[in-house]
């Protein structure tokens, strides 16, 4: 098999990010809203762990900017938290890769907590009321979702031979 070209699968990665952004904007019933998994953070973490040479801090930053515009948040708020998430995932990807998806979930929990906490910190500085549940509720659902998302995205990656 010939070595795949380095540009291969950019569309696949972009589409997965688009789907994550759409899931973030999908209206949920009021009670379920705080429990919405951090879709973009999860997908970003997966791609950083799987392809650290292609998806890195810059992608995280750009994605965060799109998320800011999508949610009408302060420009740069999600860019900050997502670039930090990408940075940490990049740093730890060697160690995280060898773990089973369930064990990775624990690290994902911490990543999402960091992501949410930074975002909440920024909203808090702007003088908006925040509650602690907004940190741990998405982290919890994201952790539970991670193994499934991992399997799905891995299949997608193999299917379209993204490397």
């Amino acid at each position: 098999m010939s070595p795949p070209s380095p540009r291969r699968g950019t569309v696949t990665i972009a589409v997965s990010f688009l789907v994550a952004l759409m899931l973030t904007a999908l209206p949920l019933p009021h009670w379920a809203e705080p429990w919405r998994p951090a879709w973009v953070t999860l997908v970003l973490a997966y791609w950083v762990l799987a392809l650290p040479h292609r998806v890195g801090v810059g992608v995280g930053w750009g994605l965060g900017l799109l998320l800011d515009v999508l949610t009408g948040a302060l420009l740069g708020q999600h860019a900050l938290s997502l670039s930090l998430v990408a940075f940490l995932a990049l740093r730890l990807h060697q160690r995280l890769r060898v773990l089973s998806p369930w064990e990775q979930g624990v690290s994902i929990f911490l990543l999402v907590v960091l992501d949410r906490a930074l975002s909440l910190w920024v909203t808090g500085i702007q003088g908006m009321p925040t509650e602690a549940r907004a940190i741990w509720a998405p982290a919890l659902t994201s952790t539970l979702l991670w193994p499934w998302l991992f399997v799905v995205l891995r299949d997608v990656r193999r299917r379209y031979q993204v490397s």
Binding site: G64, L74, L75, G76, L80, S83
Partner: peptide
């Protein structure tokens, strides 16, 4: 990127 985010947020 962190610096860029902080600058963006302040300016925004």
């Amino acid at each position: 990127f962190v610096l860029a985010s902080l600058v963006l947020m302040t300016v925004d």
